[in-house]
Design a protein around this nucleic acid. Structure first.
Lengths: 357, 357
DNA sequence: ATTCTTAGCGAAAACGTTTTCGTGTTGACA
DNA sequence: TGTCAACACGAAAACGTTTTCGCTAAGAAT
């Protein structure tokens, strides 16, 4: 087992100073061609690579981005990560991933852990518990420490930073309008409790589209599902709830669901009740994941372009990180270069499949 | 914006030496109670936290694990990550994620990048291209540098390291035997090309189960699908291929598929052909993902326990890392403590759902 | 009064870099 | 021969820690 070789070892071996080795390897013209050749050859032979940690310490930057998300086993979040990783790698950064598991405490712990030098900036999506508590001090604290944050999807006005969001409102509007155009009169909404902002926005979009179409919203056609319990493992609860909903409202001719799971479950339940999709009921879901694509019938969805969100978030963060460098060079104080944060909105797109006409 | 405070600043502020501050904060009894109190109070006030990078450099260990996987938008891999992250966090480690995107070159680049001090060890699953090329020098090189590797799922005998694998062979055997017990006579196999080891093992399990049940394997009932092309975006190709397969083999009464996608697609195609599941055809898939759970009918699968794999892999790696520390303390050379690598096999489990009787 | 402990603290090295600033040697030029 | 620039290299600081070792002063022991 040969440990990685260091500058010091090369220097000793070749009987020169550490500085000389360093300079030679960076092709400084301070060093004679002879020595440079010799050193580079030796370095190549022993496969020398500078130690990242030492560089990080010296440069006071790690070239690493911290990603903090509520859950990784989730199609949307993993596509976002893919987007981040793509851009990050292309621009010379690594990504380190932390999972909050929707927990406020784990979110804080993870942030503090990473904020102590391990990363240059964060890309994150807020956990449900944090949204419930409405306690955002840890975000502001890290920003105050000079560590920039880019939030995506689940964002919040109380924190001043770059944001990349899905146009949840308009996505919902588009979806519901499509159902209206397809002739639906009694469009049901399957949504979550309101504290997750995206759910609220989608609900608002639903209402807006109805109003704009001259249809009066019927509160009976809105089913709010408590997602504080682990729905994935209580599918039966979800199914019976939706079944009851359908039975007490037999006039429903369309369903707009704020996520994929609700949508496919609604389809499943509908068919069990003898309803045909899309003939009796048309369905559109939010989030274009693997379920939608492979469901039978395949599900028309509002695609959020997760990968694009990740890419934009990564670009925003890295832009800001490198702008900071430039500012340092130009002796600009933080006050002069006033923080004008960007809120980037990613347009949604309706992917038409078999669950609508 | 206040940058994070350092030992040096505390020392200057309180007019003591850096050493004193460091010792006081670690409650060394070299320092008087008075001074300790004063320093700790000050540190708390300014929210002092030691700089991770500096610690990493000093201790020559980063307390981070590098994960290298072919693809993140994939239910199995994300559950593995979740398992790794769970254990890693619990044992005081962070995880940094790299994606090879099934590319040999990206795999190498990522490894070299992280191996230069950024991480203490790797947990990885080999990319398809690497498996095709059968070039594993980069794995052996990093191991030789003293960086331990734990491989999972897609492993290879040519590299000497800890491994965590699914019992692909027995999983397939169990699945096919179940189909036989359910009365199926003509069990089809939907598999991939052989170079991905897991596909090969599952195929072998299929053959073994048939033989053991006294059924002669019919080559016509085996469909090898070329997964070098991006199947997800060429679903139609997959569907027609399977449709043809069904039509030329109308005697098929069961399907065993080596992954989830093939299985649900087979179900979809079967139903389009007017076949009923599970009455006309029973289906079992490998990999228990989100598709299986929510398909209609829901799919009976061989669960791989991805999270458990991740947990075991993380434990193996961290155990080895910390064993190294202990060895150092005991002045044991690498030769004495001979590397006896562990190959851990995670048993599969059949999750019965609606696609079988 | 002298020596010995011991408590309490600081100096310095080390981890692996990069970079600034010297410094000695050479050759050219006056 | 003396001066000067250019060349080639080394010493040292800095990034933020931890830890070993040494030092001083005070009190105890002789």
């Amino acid at each position: 087992m040969k440990r990685k070789i260091t500058l010091k070892q090369i220097a000793r071996e070749l009987d020169v100073s550490i500085s000389t080795v360093s300079k030679a390897l960076s092709n400084s013209k301070e060093i004679s061609e002879d020595t440079t050749q010799k050193i580079q050859a030796f370095a190549k032979l022993y496969n020398y690579r500078p130690n990242n940690i030492a560089l990080s310490l010296k440069n006071r930057k790690t070239k690493t981005i911290g990603i903090l998300i509520p859950e990784i086993v989730h199609h949307f979040f993993s596509t976002v990560i893919r987007g981040i990783e793509l851009i990050a790698n292309r621009r010379g950064y690594n990504v380190i991933v932390g999972l909050s598991n929707e927990s406020f405490t784990k979110e804080i712990i993870n942030m503090e852990l990473l904020a102590n030098g391990s990363i240059d900036g964060f890309i994150l999506s807020i956990s449900k518990e944090t949204l419930l508590k409405q306690d955002y001090h840890h975000f502001n604290a890290t920003i105050n420490q000079g560590i920039p944050i880019v939030m995506f999807d689940r964002v919040v006005n109380e924190v001043d930073c770059d944001k990349v969001i899905v146009d949840d409102f308009n996505g919902a509007v588009k979806a519901v309008k499509k159902l209206v155009e397809n002739g639906c009169k009694n469009i049901a909404l399957l949504t979550t409790m309101d504290y997750v902002s995206v759910g609220r926005l989608r609900t608002q979009g639903y209402l807006e589209a109805l109003e704009h179409s001259g249809i009066e919203a019927d509160p009976n056609l809105i089913l709010k599902i408590d997602d504080s319990l682990d729905v994935e493992n209580h599918l039966d609860v979800l199914e019976t709830e939706i079944a009851q909903f359908f039975q007490t409202n037999p006039n429903i001719d369309a369903v707009f669901a704020v996520n994929e799971l609700y949508a496919v479950t609604a389809m499943k339940v509908a068919r069990k009740l003898g309803l045909s999709i899309p003939n009796d009921i048309q369905v559109i879901g939010f989030t274009d994941g693997v379920l939608s694509k492979h469901a039978t019938p395949s599900l028309t969805t509002v695609s959020q372009h997760g990968q694009k969100i990740g890419e934009q978030a990564a670009n925003l963060l890295i832009d800001r990180l490198e702008a900071e460098d430039a500012e340092m060079d130009q002796y600009l104080s933080n006050n002069e270069r006033k923080s004008d944060y960007i809120k980037m909105v990613i347009e949604t797109e309706i992917i038409e499949r078999e669950s609508t006409k």
